[in-house]
């Protein structure tokens, strides 16, 4: 099976951040492979190990994102395409989906996969946009994948239950990090990744019209989420604490 996995480099949400003039500034500039994409890479590798085939990662992003491509290659992906942007563009999910759709328009594959959302923005739109552009059957929020002849079987976490969906290939799937625990690259994997092919593609190489690079949404500012007022913390004998807090919830808060 030929897998294309779309990956994204995102700021580490655990690193300290500041807001200057409405923009997010991360002093450490710590960037990581989006956790949901890491699960998509992992699952593609598992299916390749079981059924054979090839795993290629595709990343749209600035030069600095090469390190994230290397990470996916070190995990075991066979090759990569880097669609380079300056990193200063204010692209939204739709622009990224347009770029990827143009890239895939002349490609052959069984499955395109990606994370169900980006860890930084949580937008969760690009996957199904890409599915629509390419007119592929798709499923989102996958927590498990299995391959059958000509079919990808997706276990999707729905609102209540888990849906088992058969998608005829070629198809598209977006992955939850509930699907697996992505492998940590081994030293050997890291060494090998340096010799794996990375094809550089410029936006101008793609036959993409200017209008589909115009975002329809913009981020105009950021603010810290108002913090909750610090509450009361009780230590001591369990019985006393239990009684005290239960009474407070009943009499002060009226939530029992």
């Amino acid at each position: 099976m030929k897998f294309y996995v779309c990956i994204k480099q995102v700021p580490d949400v655990d690193a300290p951040i500041q807001i200057k003039d409405g923009k997010l500034i991360q002093d450490t500039d710590r960037m990581v492979l989006n956790a949901y994409d890491a699960s998509a890479v992992e699952e593609a590798l598992v299916l390749k190990e079981e059924h054979g085939g090839e795993v290629e990662v595709v990343l749209v992003g600035p030069d600095k994102a090469k390190e994230t491509i290397r990470k996916a290659l070190a995990m075991g992906a066979d090759k990569a395409t880097h669609i380079a942007t300056s990193g200063d563009e204010d692209y939204d999910s739709a622009t990224y989906a347009n770029i990827l759709a143009t890239f895939f328009s002349d490609k052959e594959y069984d499955v395109i996969s990606c994370g169900k959302q980006s860890q930084d923005t949580d937008a969760g739109l690009a996957g199904s946009m890409l599915g629509e552009h390419l007119d592929l059957p798709y499923a989102t929020n996958a927590v498990g994948l299995e391959a059958e002849e000509g079919t990808l079987v997706v276990k999707r976490q729905g609102d209540a239950g888990q849906e088992i969906i058969g998608l005829p290939t070629p198809c598209l799937v977006t992955c939850s990090n509930d699907m697996n625990e992505p492998r940590i690259p081994s030293l050997k994997g890291i060494m090998q990744s340096k010799r794996k092919p990375v094809e550089d593609v410029a936006l101008s190489d793609l036959d993409i019209d200017e209008s589909s690079l115009q975002p329809k949404t913009k981020v105009t500012g950021h603010m810290e989420k108002p913090e909750r007022e610090p509450g009361q913390k009780f230590e001591g004998e369990p019985e006393e604490l239990a009684q005290k807090v239960a009474t407070l919830l009943d009499e002060e808060e009226n939530v029992i």
Binding site: P11, D122, T217, G221
Partner: peptide, 14 residues
């Protein structure tokens, strides 16, 4: 929109 694991609120226009 809450972003960065809901630590930050972003202002957006569509």
């Amino acid at each position: 929109r809450p972003v960065m694991a809901a630590k930050i609120l972003s202002d957006n226009v569509a």
